[in-house]
Design a protein around this nucleic acid. Structure first.
Length: 117
DNA sequence: GGCATGACATTGC
DNA sequence: AGCAATGCCATGC
């Protein structure tokens, strides 16, 4: 694991970093073309059973941070469900956009699901 | 502190 | 493959 990720996990577990901030820090480090599950992100910040909180944190992204077109966006579209499906969060159009973004980055996907290794 | 909420995960059918 | 029932746990009121 990269030292930076270890530091983030440690800060989070010691209570020096709010879950929201830890999630942002980790997601921001996911390289283009790669994806992580919500539970995977949770594990990286030292709270393996807090997958739902990861989603809750991403839901609070400010518009400019969530906009893929903007400068330094948080790549929320690289976080998917463990079974490869995409969260809709009340917006049926989002899985479609997410899938398009991932395909643009060359993520291998089946018609509906990301194909895990 | 108690209780409801939710971009999830797992299991069992 | 799809669906329902549970378990989870950080947040906000």
């Amino acid at each position: 694991m990269e030292p930076e990720l270890a530091r983030i996990a440690a800060d989070r577990m010691e209570g020096r970093l709010p879950l929201r901030a830890a999630v942002m820090a980790v997601v921001a480090r996911i390289p283009a073309g790669k994806v992580l599950g919500y539970g995977h992100v949770a594990a990286l910040i030292g709270s393996p059973r807090a997958a739902r909180q990861v989603g809750y944190a991403l839901a609070a992204l400010r518009p400019e941070q969530a906009d893929p077109e903007g400068p330094g966006p948080i790549p929320w579209w690289r976080v998917i469900r463990s079974d490869g499906s995409l969260a809709h969060a009340g917006d049926p159009g989002r899985p479609l956009m997410q899938r398009a973004l991932l395909q643009d980055e060359g993520v291998p996907m089946a018609t509906h699901h990301w194909r895990p290794d």
